[in-house]
Amino acid sequence: MIKFKINDKEVQARSGWTVLETARQYGIEIPTLCFHESVASSGACRLCMVELREENWSKLVASCIYPVSEGINVYTETERVQNVRRWIFEMLLSECPSSKEVKEMAKKYGVFKTRFPVQNPNESCMLCGLCTRVCEEVVGLSAIATLDRGVHKKVGAPFLRPTEVCVACGCCVTICPTNAMRSRIDSVRSNTKMQLAKAA
């Protein structure tokens, strides 16, 4: 067993565990959006940042992928951690304003509104990539992927056309933390499959 501290409290973890896993074991809350037990962690949403402190240095790490080690001091609610979280929530409120889940979570962490203009009031996807990861890793099909990059990044099928690779299993819809996949699934699933599904 590996012993270390979270918020000055002694905790124990098995080797190979992440800080997030350990924290959840002890009921210490750390917010996440892009994390799911059934797929590999990608460290993309950065909501799970925690501060590591030693005598003369400190740094922020993503707890969903940071492996535990003996004697580290983890803090989940420092000013630096909260600053990152607050900005992420504010940016998400302007980027995917139609997501109830994001709004709820933001509220919980004290962010009620955003200073940034809302681009698309109907958007609820925040590109956490859970849908593409589940399709690749669990379903094994890679019917969808993240396309393009940076601010132009989006989730979709090749050439943004419905694809026959999709078997309409619904895993992406289920795993989506903001319900964004529900409205998008028809742009991914090819018509023949949809008709088949209807016929069945």
């Binding site: 998400l92 980027e95 925040m126 590109l127």
Partner: peptide
């Protein structure tokens, strides 16, 4: 950097443009 960001993490993808 906004054009070159891979867009994977939220602070970079949404932060740079803001």
């Amino acid at each position: 950097l906004e054009e070159e960001s891979c867009g994977k993490c939220i602070p970079c993808r949404l932060g740079l443009i803001r």
